[in-house]
Nucleic acid binder design. Sequence first.
DNA 1: AAAAAATATGTAAACGTTTACATTTGAAAC
DNA 2: GTTTCAAATGTAAACGTTTACATATTTTTT
Lengths: 336, 336
Amino acid sequence: MKVDIKEVAKRSGYSTATVSRVYSNGEAVKSSTKQKILKIADELNYIPNPIARSLSKQSTDTIGVILPDLFGEFFMDIIHGIDEEAYKQNRFVIVSSSHSKRNFLETLVEFMGSGRVDGVILMASQIDEMVAKIIKKSKRPIVFINAGDELKNIVNFKINNYEGAFGIVEHLILEHKYKKIGLIKGPDDNYDAIERTKGYYKALTIYGHNIIPDLILPGNFLVEGGYEGFKKIFRHKQRPDAIFIANDMMAIGAYQAAEEMGVNIPGDVAVVGFDDIYLSQFLIPRITTVHVPISDLGSRAVNYLLKIMQSKNNKPYVEILPTKLVVGESCGCKKI
Amino acid sequence: MKVDIKEVAKRSGYSTATVSRVYSNGEAVKSSTKQKILKIADELNYIPNPIARSLSKQSTDTIGVILPDLFGEFFMDIIHGIDEEAYKQNRFVIVSSSHSKRNFLETLVEFMGSGRVDGVILMASQIDEMVAKIIKKSKRPIVFINAGDELKNIVNFKINNYEGAFGIVEHLILEHKYKKIGLIKGPDDNYDAIERTKGYYKALTIYGHNIIPDLILPGNFLVEGGYEGFKKIFRHKQRPDAIFIANDMMAIGAYQAAEEMGVNIPGDVAVVGFDDIYLSQFLIPRITTVHVPISDLGSRAVNYLLKIMQSKNNKPYVEILPTKLVVGESCGCKKI
DNA sequence: AAAAAATATGTAAACGTTTACATTTGAAAC
DNA sequence: GTTTCAAATGTAAACGTTTACATATTTTTT
């Protein structure tokens, strides 16, 4: 049997308005009537219809999340952080991965333009004018995660890749006095990767090291990339003392290559990574890497998004979360 | 400026009904009018409001997913599979983790009873009468993932833990002739764990091996659990030839313990795991384990859920997805 | 060319809430 | 016992669609 607010109103002898008020807290309704209505509602198994409510209030209690992919540890952590905060603030979360560029834009339009969600959290690899246009058109707030500098005047939460990379390379230089420090880069079109490369350059430069182009190899953030990169860098006449590998996945590949080649880490060469992924703690020797607060990124983004929605503030805002050096033994430090 | 269907209707000179028909495919509308309306709509930047549509059609294009947690590879894979299939079928996905028992029930009620979603996919550790009651009350379809046998007459997609465990232990017995095969179990209240233990017993029994209680240790599916379990099993006078560790996470712990103790795998003892998690491929020696099609579990559940929704069929149905033995070197097999 | 059938469009009532505004009720003040 | 004010409740118009049913238009059949 269908039971709606009218039914509850009729049976309880009150109007729909009063019943409605019972369910929207803070409204003036005598406590005795509230009890009566709640009792009837309970008997009838009445649950307010959120869709109708959304239509009337012009707001769903839902935020939309668009991620480039739903695969791997990184995105799991993001979602985890988002879910955690959304739950605390009583919001539902619709997640969607990009699947394809076309779908990505469609989803963005749907989320931004249609009222299915109250706000959007967006993480995307390619943010172009198309995206800019969609955002401009919409009045719904949007918070970016890890967006680059293509778009100005946005709200963006990101990781301090630059400082993180600088710091870990600095560690190699200051603590260990390595002279020839190689780099296995991430993809050239990846914002994180670019920033990490910049940090590497900066550290070398600031401490007066030469940049040796032969020791800088392309990579792809995948295990194989690290594997190939490590092999290649070792075939070169100028052997590096240390290698900064732009993420831990590639570092895993490098470990495999080292094992195969009989190269000892850190005896023959020091290796450091980036990301501090879950797997990292199981590498032997424990890899020295940079911890990035990914889950935080998600929860803070949600938190800020909800803040925007309340205050109707739409000022640009960028928050750059700090990273943290995690010292293992792969850099040459001793276990304590 | 607010632009709704009425605005488009007015400007185009047609009625709202015709405009609506343009957007609900399959309806009879002359192609010339369709063009005209679409043109106006485009100029006005009109996007049909999905909330209003949902209210009218009494169906959102959304499915709800409730998971016990949003952490770790397992759930990532599930979500991945769900998202993939939902995308193919043009559905949105609301995800929610349980957070707490109380919230779990609230979410379930909200999803099942209120019309926020059209159907639910539920994975939960504790499925009790409370859950049964909620489900009974609702007319919305629900598909379980990995539910135990507590509830009868449900739609349930699960992994064949029993066969998987049986198969891998059988491998140890038939291929390697191990006699004393130990077990590090999962949590006692975990359905998967229980099934895996059963498979282990079955294999030993069927091939006439004694069950040696001292070689059966409790575990918790966590790295430390495997670490502790391995150390303990080795302190015992009866050393096992081989150990079946109920999941790969614990196997990682066991590898660590072995390393510390100077125990060689598989030279001193063979080790096999379960799950074939992403990390597993990086263990040296490659671990022999059981692959479980987790992502499939998600996509099939969604697929079936949508099928139910169309056909209004609500027959109980259980699908048990097969696992697959992944042979590495940790069991004593040679690399090929 | 009229009748019949098929196609295209319009009218208006749902869908289930919220909420501005109006009204009633009850208590406090005089 | 009025008057005044606050608190509680009611009325009815949104919110933006879809769709059964009715009507108008076009095509096919005769």
